[in-house]
């Protein structure tokens, strides 16, 4: 299996001097194609920082972040934006759909931003929406959708256009249990189809969908395993 995302001894320090906070301390981490990795940990453990670094929204203080073989740290703002359009897909807890755009337009967004013709982008978007099971809602606006539908749109947006890295930040946090399970199933299916997924979550049930669980505490990976009893690792994370 080839590694889609690699973090090599990545540190991230916020602030300077006495007020400096070390969010991540020399974390090494990979996610391979076809693999869904759950990242768990208590509040402030560095989960979200890991995700922003993986998505190229932030740069590490030291270490390298490699996506599909490209070192994000060596890329400029523009090229990192291009990476987000073409290689990385984000799924957020509160969906972050653009209310002024329809479902199809939201999904087509990365393609259009990448310069594709609107018609082709829209067609690809419809296909992606069909895949997540809401092709019939393509022309609805986000405000007219349920949470589950909105999150499906967000996932469609994250995977549209052959992107192989999906970063999901508590994607089920705003959903009821049943809908949450559906969404995770969808993510799992995308990974089985060849994408690498990173799922930040604090719910043990969801971690069960993952191939591997990485546990963070105070910016350090304290356990990385595909077999350890997940529930045991989670006790500290329940405070969140």
């Amino acid at each position: 299996m080839s590694a889609v995302l690699t973090l090599d001894r990545v540190s991230r320090v916020h602030g300077e001097g006495a007020s400096a906070v070390e969010a991540l301390k020399s974390v090494t981490f990979t996610a391979a194609a076809g693999e869904l990795v759950a990242v768990m940990g208590p509040s402030g453990s560095g989960k979200s920082t890991l995700l922003t670094l993986a998505g190229g929204l932030d740069s590490p203080t030291s270490g390298t972040v490699t996506v599909e073989g490209a070192d994000l740290g060596s890329l400029g703002l523009k090229d990192r934006a291009r990476m987000r359009r073409t290689a990385i897909g984000y799924v957020f807890q509160d969906f972050n759909l653009i209310p002024a755009l329809t479902a199809a337009e939201n999904v087509a967004l990365p393609l259009e931003l990448d310069g594709q013709r609107p018609r082709a982008a829209r067609a690809a978007a419809r296909l992606a929406l069909d895949e997540v099971g809401i092709g019939h809602l393509a022309d609805r606006f986000p405000d007219d959708m349920s949470g589950g539908q909105a999150q499906r749109v967000a996932i469609a947006r994250a995977v549209v256009g052959e992107r192989r890295l999906i970063l999901a930040d508590e994607p089920t946090g705003a959903l009821d249990t049943e809908t949450g399970e559906d969404i995770l199933q969808l993510l799992r299916a995308r990974c089985d189809a060849g994408a690498a997924g990173v799922l930040v979550t604090h719910e043990a049930r969801h971690a069960a969908w993952a191939d591997r669980v990485v546990f963070l505490r105070d910016g350090v990976v304290v356990d990385e395993s595909g077999s350890a009893p997940v529930d045991a690792l989670l006790d500290a994370g329940q405070g969140r």
């Binding site: 929204l57 703002l77 359009r85 990385i88 972050n96």
Partner: peptide
């Protein structure tokens, strides 16, 4: 602002 942040997250280049 939130919409622009979303645009950025899905890969909008700075000049967007």
């Amino acid at each position: 602002r939130p919409d622009l942040a979303t645009l950025s997250a899905v890969g909008a280049s700075p000049r967007t």
